[in-house]
Amino acid sequence: MTPVLEIRDLSVDYGQGEGAVHAVSSVNLVLNRGEVLGLAGESGSGKSTLAYAMTRLLPPPGLITGGEVLHHGRDKPEPVDVLGLTPKQLRSFRWNDIAIVFQGAMNSLNPVSTVAAQLEDIYRAHRPEMSRAQRTKRSAELLRLVGISADRLGSYPHQLSGGMRQRVMIAMALALDPEIIIMDEPTTALDVVMQRQILEQMMRLREELGFSVLFITHDISLLVEFSDRIAIMYAGRIVEQAASEDMYRASSHPYSKGLLGSFPALHGPRRPLTGIPGSPPDMRTVPSGCPFHPRCPSAFDVCEREIPVLEKLSGANGDSSRSVACWLNTPSLSGHPGVGAT
């Protein structure tokens, strides 16, 4: 597959000096063209920080301390490092190449502007050559694309339901036909019926328009159904990556297994919900070694001392699409008495 976005060794701190909080530590991710990549983890694992850093929307005191974010544009012969763009280039990159659907639509939309005004603002800023009639026509087309009647152009955000507001946010993200859409927990505040409708519509649009999606959520059950690949994040690090079906059927990291055991299966036999004991670590005082070891049922002595490296695992068929950062999956420790303990 062809990559459209590569994140290489990206690190983010909040604050500086000895008191800095390492919110994201040397993350590597690849989003391929036309794919849906899911990013899961508990609150505070660094998912949203990663999204804001890669789009340079990170608010103070957030600071990118290292790494690259390479965009492979459809009309560009060489990849461009987003972290090196000038303010003018960055303004063009956002909306044209990448767009974000934020979690709280009511907080993201301007409460005193109509839907039409907010959609047309995008074209005024990025397509100044468009006439007013063209802007209005295109805005109506965008609403119809996400399943909203064009007569809602004159509505204010408070006059729309939660689901309709989220659809307006999706329409805004699609306004300039970007290559990448970042969905940062876009359906958290919605009921399960509306959640499914919006995600199904988003996947239909992805098939129709061909953009790539980075889908961020704490609900791994959604990713199993709607994403092609899943990356699991814990304490600012990627701990496992795999195809969605492989992750669901045979996850390798104990944290991934805990997340998958935290929601009920809708089909098949009943199974107990295991969950994960304890709470995510305070990022100001992350445990030594593997950050997950205090909560891990399979931890042994090396887990307390050394941080495991994210390494590729080859399956029986030679497939190496899965990567795991866990001492349980390290070949050199396969004979250790702690490996496989529960």
Rank of each mutant, 00 (worst) to 15 (best):
M1V: 03
L5V: 02
I7P: 07
S11R: 13
G15S: 14
Q16I: 12
Q16R: 14
S25L: 13
S25N: 15
S26A: 15
L29V: 02
L31C: 09
L31F: 02
R33V: 01
R33T: 07
L37V: 06
G38R: 05
K47H: 06
T49N: 08
M54E: 12
L63W: 15
L63E: 15
G66Y: 15
R74K: 13
D75A: 15
D75T: 13
P79T: 05
V80L: 10
V80P: 03
G84R: 14
T86C: 06
K88W: 05
L90Y: 03
R91N: 09
S92T: 13
F93K: 07
F93G: 05
R94L: 00
I100G: 04
I100F: 04
V101Q: 08
Q103V: 09
G104V: 13
G104R: 14
A105H: 09
N110H: 14
V112K: 05
V112N: 06
A116T: 04
A116L: 12
A117N: 12
A117E: 13
Q118E: 04
Y123A: 05
Y123P: 00
R124A: 07
R124D: 04
R127H: 11
R127A: 08
P128Q: 11
K137W: 13
S139T: 01
S139E: 04
L143K: 09
I148H: 02
D151V: 00
L153R: 04
Y156W: 04
L160E: 05
L160C: 08
L160Y: 11
G162N: 10
G162H: 11
G163M: 03
M164N: 07
M164S: 08
R165D: 02
Q166E: 07
A175Y: 06
P178M: 11
I180W: 11
I182S: 03
P186D: 10
P186Q: 09
T187V: 12
A189P: 00
D191K: 11
V192F: 10
V193E: 08
M194T: 12
I198V: 12
I198Y: 12
L199T: 03
Q201F: 08
M202G: 06
R204E: 10
L205K: 04
R206W: 03
E207M: 13
E207D: 14
E208F: 11
G210F: 01
S212T: 01
I216S: 02
I220H: 00
I220Y: 01
S221A: 13
E225F: 00
S227Q: 07
I230T: 00
Y234V: 00
V239P: 03
E245D: 07
D246Y: 06
Y248N: 08
R249D: 00
A250M: 03
S252G: 09
P254A: 01
S256T: 10
G258M: 08
L260P: 01
G261S: 03
A265F: 05
A265L: 14
A265H: 12
P269S: 11
R270A: 11
R270D: 01
S279N: 13
S279Y: 10
P280F: 05
P280D: 09
D282Q: 08
S288Q: 09
G289N: 05
C290N: 08
P291G: 02
C296N: 08
C296I: 02
P297T: 06
S298Q: 14
A299F: 00
V302A: 10
C303H: 13
I307D: 12
V309D: 14
K312E: 14
S314N: 15
G315T: 11
G318P: 06
G318S: 11
R322H: 03
L333P: 03
H336D: 08
H336Y: 10
